[in-house]
């Protein structure tokens, strides 16, 4: 009887008031992490709707969220085609940015001379606003798709280059020494030490570049302007603006924002999958 009492009281003692409070707070925070953004978003949309209805704002100045949704559904064929065009440019630019960024980063770490010679050019490309370069690009480049691609690439490749270069150079110096002691060849040090060390840096650059290539693609479309056939979302926004079709502008804007979020989320998941086994950033803390 005595022994039984003791086990019971021990079991109770395992979760004291303090621990229970911490556990409760963790549960509440877990739910709140998802619930809060949804509530705030819902409230904002509701506020937007009320603002339009109560002030009787005409739809050609500010459409209600309901009207924007209707337009999104009604204009889906046009908008979806435009979305595909924009996304195509975005992903092609991102792919070229990855190849160019990683390729240049590897070249820079293999040759100090290459880095000294070309790094300033990469910086110049990065700091010059793409809006101001784009018109020139469209003068010199006949093919519109290649022009768009070039613009988006200029914006997107630098974070990948900068981050990957940093990553390749931040391999543990003792491990480098170890590689030398074991007589590793250059490509072996690159393959077995520098590339894995650079992976977290590269992935973080990739997440930034994903958003930037979308922005680059849209900005380039704005500058490229007309074209009619095979035009992207930015062109649709411009066109709708000329026609005072404000709901369609909002609908296109929502598509761009959603695409950006999806790209970011996708790249974040990719990053997590690549790093979850070993990198600090992807580990759950006890």
């Amino acid at each position: 009887m005595m022994a039984l009492d003791r086990t019971v009281s021990q079991a109770e003692a395992l979760v004291d008031a303090d621990e229970a409070r911490i556990a409760r707070r963790r549960r509440v925070e877990g739910v709140g992490k998802w619930l809060m953004p949804v509530i705030v978003l819902g409230l904002s949309i509701w506020g937007w709707d009320r603002l339009v209805v109560w002030n009787a704002i005409p739809h050609y100045i500010l459409p209600s969220p309901g009207r924007v949704m209707q337009t999104l559904i009604k204009d889906w064929p046009i908008l979806f085609d435009a979305l595909l065009v924009t996304l195509q440019i975005t992903f092609m630019a991102l792919a070229v940015a990855v190849i160019g960024g990683v390729g240049l980063a590897i070249l820079f770490t293999q040759s100090r001379w290459a880095e000294m010679s070309f790094y300033p050019f990469a910086v110049i490309l990065q700091v010059t606003p793409v809006v101001s370069v784009a018109p020139l690009i469209f003068i010199y480049v006949e093919n519109r798709t290649i022009g768009l691609l070039l613009c988006a690439w200029i914006v997107a490749f630098f974070p990948i280059l900068a981050n990957t270069t940093l990553g390749l150079n931040s391999a543990d110096s003792n491990l480098r020494d170890l590689m030398r002691i074991y007589g590793a060849r250059r490509w072996q040090t690159l393959r077995f030490l520098q590339l894995p060390s650079a992976l977290p840096y590269f992935l973080s650059g990739l997440r930034i570049a994903g958003g930037l290539s979308l922005i680059g693609a849209i900005v380039a479309e704005y500058v490229a302007g007309t074209g009619g056939i095979g035009s992207g979302l930015a062109f649709r926004i411009l066109e709708a603006g000329y026609r005072l079709n404000i709901p369609r502008m909002f609908a296109a804007l929502i598509l761009i924002a959603v695409s950006g979020v999806v790209i970011f989320a996708g790249l974040s998941i990719l990053s997590h999958l690549c790093l979850r086994k070993w990198h600090e950033s992807a580990l759950k803390r006890e």
């Binding site: 003792n174 077995f192 894995p196």
Partner: peptide
């Protein structure tokens, strides 16, 4: 420092001199 490759398992770390 232990100077291990964090992305590799214990066996893979010990494999390094042979791998090279």
């Amino acid at each position: 420092e232990p100077t291990l490759m964090p992305w590799a398992t214990v066996a893979q770390n010990v494999w390094l001199p042979f791998r090279l």
